[in-house]
Design a protein around this nucleic acid. Structure first.
Lengths: 198, 198
DNA sequence: CAGGGAGGTTAGCGGTCGTTAACCTGAAGG
DNA sequence: CCTTCAGGTTAACGACCGCTAACCTCCCTG
């Protein structure tokens, strides 16, 4: 067969397996030997690709936060001039896609942040904050009576709802990806609507 | 028999601090010396009260799951003969109280389960499953058209929403405990309503 | 008032972990 | 054909961690 569009580089392979293992057993619960074994090399061979175990986690978390924020900004741009209501649906859809397709990353993203070095942690926190604030502004446009602190709480809570995908049973026991995505979407909108209705 | 308002025993003190530390830095990220220091004794002194570090986590997780389930069963009993709608509100209220008052435990409860020994993990899983199924049956009574798999997914998602309290900022930056509880309650009901409306 | 248990202490052992050092190898390039 | 180098290997080091051993010291009680 012809080479695929992008053969996954070894770095990406390592990051993928590291994410899975970190999500399963926690950052401190996984040894570098295990990560190496997961990609067919062993232990110290990883140091040809990363400065250390911390660097893998940092790259994962920065990547996640950046990807979420970039995607959200793109959606805002594409919806320019449209209704805030449609934009909110778009944001929800994007977040659900991410939560369903990259469960290990979603798990890491709100679990292992404190294991980062100061500089990396601040960067991730900043990206996450921008993402939240973007949502908050859209939510407040859809529900103008909702005070900002309540809107921010509501956004965090809806993230909790959408990020519950890892608890939803392994893919296969679900009613199907599309049905699950739609259910989550409806629930998120329902939650926001309930928050915005005094 | 035991009086109800005892001064916290050393065991309880240890469990409390261990829960906080485990939630902050992860089970593997906390050393026994730190736990000891948090209660004013040092390291190995903990072994006068617990068989080991694992035993502390086990007691915490079994305690959480059991407490949630017991509380839910009590609420079902007290609501006997009443409407399922009121009962669902009662369950939500109980879960919110727990999520707001014991944030470290809520964090541990869905994060460190895999660090348990087989026997303990199975016990915790069983308690959690009973708790979920209790919610599912109540939700299906309130929204009879909702299929069981969808109801179960909805329950897990609402747990994700309610358990988002640790992300809501330290207590003090919130609009107040009562207002936060009410907001979470409304959002949970809104999410369920959206799930149950085809 | 002996003595024994509850609840501490410090020293240290054995194992694990992240990381480095030193070495190997196959393929590309002039 | 020789060199270079990316990408591996194994050995080993130092730090840390969970836990045990050995010992101490109150306080309660018969």
């Amino acid at each position: 067969m012809a080479t695929r569009t992008d053969a996954p580089t070894r770095r990406e392979q390592i990051l993928r397996e590291a994410a899975r293992l970190f999500a399963e057993r926690g950052f401190h619960g996984v040894g570098v030997d295990e990560i190496g074994a997961a990609v067919g090399i062993s232990g110290p061979g990883l140091y040809r690709h990363f400065a250390g175990k911390d660097a893998m986690l940092a790259e994962l978390l920065v990547g996640i936060s950046g990807q979420l924020l970039t995607g959200a900004k793109r959606r805002v741009r594409e919806a320019d001039g449209g209704s805030a209501d449609v934009l909110l649906d778009s944001l929800i859809e994007g977040h659900i896609d991410f939560a369903l397709d990259d469960r290990p990353l979603i798990t890491l993203h709100d679990r292992e942040l404190d294991r980062l070095r100061d500089t990396d942690r601040k960067l991730v926190r900043q990206l996450q904050r921008q993402y939240v604030e973007l949502w908050v502004s859209v939510v407040r446009e859809v529900y103008p009576t909702l005070p900002e602190p309540a809107a921010r709480s509501a956004v965090h809570s809806v993230f909790g709802l959408l990020n519950s995908t890892p608890h939803l049973g392994r893919p296969g026991s679900l009613p199907g990806r599309g049905a699950t995505a739609e259910l989550l979407h409806r629930m998120a909108r329902g939650a926001f609507a309930a928050a915005g209705t005094d």
